[in-house]
Nucleic acid binder design. Structure first.
Lengths: 149, 149
DNA sequence: AGCGTAATGTAATGTTATTACACCACCTTC
DNA sequence: GAAGGTGGTGTAATAACATTACATTACGCT
């Protein structure tokens, strides 16, 4: 019987296979923990979770695995939070912007090719070539705009 | 006789005075080092430089001063580089985007109110309120696009 | 002078990330 | 089936980045 969360793991497996890479047991465990977290997670928190099922895990264990998943486009690193989050649409062509809430630290991914194109055009004059895979916008999410604090 | 770099320091002083804050000797030294660096600098590199003229300087010395300068809008923190850079136009109203080169780690600031407005409008549908003071775009600068590596 | 607040000094510690090297599994090729 | 290469992981140590907590000093105010 299939466990919950298997579908994205299988998708990741095929996605990697198409690149000639493998979803090893370690990578599967890490990705599974990332998926279970629903939102950005810090490397050391992920390490703590991983150690429950894999006691020998150490910082290089998680950082190597995260680097791999990021390079494969399955996971995003959020610079402003020093955290990592699964890309909800890694398996499909997309041009996503990460909307990072500075208050609750939630992250949404907004897929907007039109928006990307607009930005690229606006930047053209400056001679700067935007990396559209690493775009992170800080601000307040809908919920957090309401809060007074 | 005025030393080189005095002008921006004096500008910072008035800018702060208008906010009821002061450019103390320590802040002046730190800002001066930041200006002398022409580009982003890491906190600990700044600390090392500061210690040459102020041997007792420690991490809190620089982090406190940087926090102050960032809060005053004089310095930007570049999340993707974990570095700090003087805002070239802190004294004037502006809506700058930081263009961070992923290869040479240089930073340009592009002032484009039109661009900001476009983005804000594009984001409106998502309910997300962009923080226009903290916008950082990664990519390749004009020079680095040419390099083959 | 005495008080209150802002600024800085100082020691320790917390958090994030990397290096370097050892070992093992798997695959190839002879 | 042994030799050698590659990719993946284990392990120890350390580097790099940042904060806490508390002591002390500087300065404006009455």
């Amino acid at each position: 019987m299939a466990r919950i969360m298997d579908a994205p793991l299988d998708t990741a497996e095929s996605w990697l296979a198409a690149r000639g890479e493998k979803l090893t047991e370690l990578r599967r465990e890490v990705l599974s923990l990332l998926l279970a977290n629903h939102g950005p997670i810090k490397a050391y928190d992920l390490l703590a979770a991983l150690q429950k099922q894999r006691p020998g895990a150490s910082p290089p264990t998680v950082y190597r695995t995260l680097d791999f998943l990021v390079a494969a486009g399955i996971v995003h690193r959020i610079d402003s939070l020093q955290s990592f989050v699964v890309c909800p649409t890694f398996h499909a062509p997309h041009q996503g912007v990460l909307l990072v809430c500075e208050r609750c630290h939630g992250v949404e991914e907004l897929d907007s090719p039109l928006w990307m194109e607009t930005m690229r055009r606006e930047l053209a004059g400056s001679g700067f070539a935007m990396n559209q895979h690493e775009l992170e916008i800080k601000g307040l999410c809908r919920n957090c705009q309401v809060v007074t604090v």
